[in-house]
Design a protein around this nucleic acid. Structure first.
Lengths: 251, 251
DNA sequence: CCGATTTTGTTCTCACGTTCACAAGCTCCT
DNA sequence: AGGAGCTTGTGAACGTGAGAACAAAATCGG
């Protein structure tokens, strides 16, 4: 079963272009590992080597790579440069993607100054904010511009990716306006659930959620048997006598 | 994966303290949605309401909540305050967790100033860096201290969570020293795969990986039929004649 | 007090993702 | 040339997660 999802009863249909989402999320990790190996002068690496560098197990790595094609050589391994190029191409970072950052607070500043913007493949074309006090300020080698210009900027630079680093409040409106302007991928750092129309991809980076997940596991470690187990209110049917339920507005 | 796995072949065994990881990752989202509803004066909400606010479907939400216990009322819904407390307790944010931030560059600054530190439940007890030029600098209402003091700080404040915002280079060493000092949960912003011993949890936040995932989908949207499909090198067995393979050191 | 209505909690099924295990294929040594 | 030794690519088993669907419980109106 090469790629080519099942569905069709006929022949395997070559590369029916269907890479599992879980695999897509790991490809950038492999890409980074390959770049590191390349920088160390390593020309060839086995799936075991690569897996170690990427922090996964080798079976998973091999299966992931098999969705892209047969780029390895049995008995030998993978050519680092060649595989690196193939993954970069598959991800789409052999071309440059124009990015705008909206919300130039602490985090926006930090991202704007993030040299190299992680890996190559992305180009920040504008820093935007709605605060008149910020507009015109220089950040790195760019100047903060008025978010009101978003339409023009997106069209002029063919921007497809928007990064939202505003507070939670304005995030949905910023998102709506980005989408209206033509942005079709959004990376959201604001602590809210954004809703977008079909066809627009959205990903979320959320510090406090990550911390809470860690806290959950941490509690298990220390607590385990020492947990208070708290009231728990064995039956608790009536939903009555709660400590401090606010107003009485029903849903 | 966490402790307390199933193992036992017997009956369903009540609430054997095993909440699926996927559910754990969503609980903070529900908690935030409940807080928002609570702030709006809503006292009761159905699974449908909650699901909408959290951006998931109601069946999934109900199943997730069912792992915690039966905290709803059939025909009515969930009491917002009560459920909020139960989830907060399950996650472990009814107590305060001491956190250190290591690496006070742009991102470290941004996180240090992140008011409220997302949601309550976390307390930054120290900002650390190894750069003598930074040590002593004031950031918000705290002062940057020497990373060399990590052992003392972890012990004095019972720090269990460390946030790494250093560049990739020193990240693994910082991680090792955090672990050696007694930190058992790590949130890593550095673009490297960190390895930690068993018993230590680690989570990763990685801007460039998120962007690359977006780029992949973006490429599919615009390209689809316009993709170059590139060389692809039909057979390519010998791994020979590659454009620019670096040194010749084998693995 | 009873039936209609609402909404939860749970069961069942299907899809997705991970891991194992091994045949296929390549290189190298004799 | 032939066999030994590696390493990939993949088929199959297994485990986890998502979604549909429904029975069980609670409220409310008559």
């Amino acid at each position: 079963m090469t790629r080519a999802s099942s569905r069709r009863p006929g022949p395997p249909t070559r590369t029916e272009r269907g890479i599992p989402e879980a695999t897509v999320a790991r490809l950038p990790v492999y890409l980074r590992a390959l770049t590191a190996l390349s920088d160390s002068g390593i020309a060839t690496a086995s799936s075991e080597d690569l897996a170690t560098a990427a922090g996964v197990n080798s079976a998973k790595l091999r299966k992931d790579l098999s969705y892209l094609g047969s780029y390895g050589t049995r008995g030998v391994g993978y050519d680092v440069e060649y595989l690196r190029y193939q993954i970069a191409r598959e991800i789409g970072v052999t071309q440059d993607w124009a990015v705008v950052i909206v919300g130039i607070g602490n985090l926006g500043h930090a991202l704007a100054n993030y040299s190299g913007f992680g890996t190559r493949g992305f180009r920040i074309v504008a820093l935007l904010d709605a605060d008149p006090n910020l507009i015109g300020e220089r950040v790195g080698d760019m100047e903060v511009r008025d978010f009101a210009q978003i339409e023009d900027i997106v069209k002029a630079d063919r921007v497809s990716i928007g990064v939202i680093t505003t507070p939670a409040g304005p995030a949905q409106e910023v998102c709506d306006r980005l989408v209206a302007a033509g942005v079709t991928s959004i990376l959201n750092f604001a602590p809210v659930v954004l809703s977008v129309p079909d066809g627009v991809d959205i990903r979320k980076v959320d510090l406090s959620i990550e911390l809470q997940i860690l806290a959950y596991h941490e509690q298990r470690k220390s607590g385990e048997a020492a947990l208070p187990e708290v009231p728990e209110l064995p039956a608790m049917n009536g939903l009555t006598d709660l400590p401090s339920v606010g107003g009485g507005v029903g849903a």
